[in-house]
Design a protein around this nucleic acid. Structure first.
Length: 479
RNA sequence: CGGGGUGUAGCGCAGCUGGUAGCGCGCUUGGUUCGGGACCAAGAGGCCGGGGGUUCAAGUCCCCCCACUCCGACCA
């Protein structure tokens, strides 16, 4: 019992202090470390491996839908950044500037990219000539810098890693289709790979990306019932292509500005899965992105044959393309159990002398803690089934959290009560005015999350001004 | 950028009215263990966040920085 106590003491329980619980996991599961650069975090091997797995899945999906990877300069001349007014307004306050090149002062200062719309436009200005070259479907994996005031691992840091997709199209409709297709791709990724349900929707004018005509978003609900914007997809119309003079000769032999999109998910998603699935024993990783999907723990490993038996299980699982590790270190089994629970490994396979006699092994699930004994002959099928079960269960739990904590309200007082109480998503009607949106922030303490793509089509009253309206909107406290 | 909290060994902390640094975990070596964070023994490890004061003497008192962290405002 005393040992169990020590076990829980390892991290702050989420009921006690959710924020501390979160940072405890980030550090103790060895995902990140702080660096000497204020506001910058180091992604450690285990944290980076999670991101790599996410990257790999997204990259494949993007290539399958015709996107090509490119690399743009990390520095943007100020004059280039300034060409589009709203973008400068949005990003200049948090840009990091380079003013020296070696020992010489630069004639023009350079911003470390906070986002690369400008560089892509600059490039397209040079290479685009005819509609036959369209669409151009580009993507780049890189990091960006935004001089954030306060930072938290994965959720907000001055540098973060992401991919940024940038596309240009011949027609507005094509670009809009692209924006929506990508939103679906992101939502699909979150649900199928991260076991994280999302609400798909459109941002209000107040919340949309600087310079965008429309911003689409996927919003997810964390275990503390706060909202996390998990991915965005923007439609720009021809605003940037006009500002940066990007043109092509159309089918009508006239010059046109292409229609543009951009979209991204970031390392923030690592934070999202921590807060969606994690528990008081540590991280809980969805199998699709877990760096180690199965940990094999030999019991009484110095007894003859145990290590060989364990290694055989590892090899068999590797042969069906699972990410497997065997821990034959001198640590005690109990220590290993706790350690890999902290790291969120979905399944643990134990094998010891007793199992060997019975030609079986023990499989423990990270999500439920449930242990089952499996005949050695059934290892592969049992593991595959259990991995799927873990994924399904994680999704079901997250979906339940989202559904149980999404409320339909008609007055701002109800929204306020929710926000000051347990929290959650409030779904109301909205008249569409900025005044009422600001009032919700002021009075109820929530920001608009999105106008869901799935609109009910009903009529109701705006919770602030009482005007009759049809738009459904989600409100919540956001990260 | 406003408000709070914290900086002492890798981590978590103790160190009272000032007197020259300690505990637990971890780490190293050897041995016994191994089905939920094992045990014994011997070790290694400190510019007490940085700078300035006060004092015979500062981890301790005063001032100024800096970093981390939480809560707001801004954002993925």
């Amino acid at each position: 019992m005393a040992k169990d106590q020590r076990n829980v003491e390892a991290i702050t329980p989420m009921e006690v202090d959710f924020a501390k619980w979160y940072t405890d996991i980030c550090l103790k599961a060895e995902l990140v470390d702080y660096s000497s650069m204020k506001g910058f975090t180091i992604l450690r091997p285990y944290g980076y491996a999670i991101w790599e797995n996410m990257q790999s899945i997204i990259d494949k999906a993007l290539k399958k839908t015709g996107h090509q990877n490119v690399a743009m300069p990390a520095l943007i001349p100020e004059s280039l950044l300034k060409k589009e007014g709203e973008l400068v307004e949005g990003f200049a306050p948090e840009a990091a500037w380079v003013t020296m090149g070696g020992s010489e002062k630069l004639e023009e200062r350079l911003a470390f990219r906070p986002t690369s719309e400008t560089m892509f436009c600059d490039h397209w200005h040079n290479v685009l000539q005819t509609y036959r070259q369209l669409p151009m479907l580009y993507n780049q994996w890189c990091s960006v810098i935004r001089w954030e005031k306060t930072t938290r691992p994965f959720l907000r840091s001055r540098e973060f890693w992401w991919h940024e997709g940038h596309t240009i199209h011949e027609t507005a409709q094509e670009a809009i289709d692209e924006t929506e297709m990508i939103l679906d791709l992101f939502a699909d990724f979150c649900e199928k790979s991260l076991a994280m349900p999302v609400v798909k929707g459109r941002k209000t004018d107040k919340e949309k990306f600087a310079g965008a005509e429309a911003t689409y978003t996927i919003e997810s609900m964390m275990k503390d019932r706060k909202a996390l914007q998990s991915g965005t997809s923007h439609y720009f119309g021809s605003k940037f292509s006009e500002a940066y003079d990007v043109t092509f000769l159309g089918r009508d032999n006239k010059l046109h500005h292409p229609f543009q999109t951009s979209w991204a998910v970031t390392t923030r998603l690592v934070g999202a899965i921590i807060m969606t699935h994690g528990d008081n024993n540590g991280l809980v990783l969805p199998p699709a992105i877990a760096p180690i999907q199965v940990i094999v723990v030999p019991i009484a490993q110095h007894k003859p044959g145990v290590l060989d038996a364990a290694a055989e299980l590892r090899d068999r699982l590797e042969n069906i393309d699972l990410r497997v590790k065997m821990d034959d270190s001198e640590q005690s089994p109990g220590w290993k159990f706790a350690q890999y629970e902290m790291k969120g490994v979905p399944l643990r396979v134990e094998i010891g002398p007793k199992d060997m006699e019975k030609q079986q092994c023990c499989i423990a699930r990270r999500d439920t803690g449930e242990k089952t004994f499996v005949p050695l002959a059934d290892l592969e099928s049992a593991v595959q089934t259990l991995l799927q079960d873990v994924h399904d269960n994680l999704y079901a739990m997250a979906e339940k959290n989202l559904e149980d904590n999404t409320f339909d309200f008609t007055s701002w007082e109800e929204v306020k009560e929710m926000a000051q109480g347990k929290g959650g998503f409030a779904r109301t009607k909205w008249c569409g005015s900025l005044e009422c949106e600001l009032a919700m922030k002021e009075k109820a303490g929530v920001s608009s999350r999105c106008m869901p793509l799935k609109q009910s089509g009903t009529t109701g009253k705006c919770p602030v001004c009482g005007k009759e309206c049809t738009t459904d909107i989600y409100w919540g406290v956001a990260y």
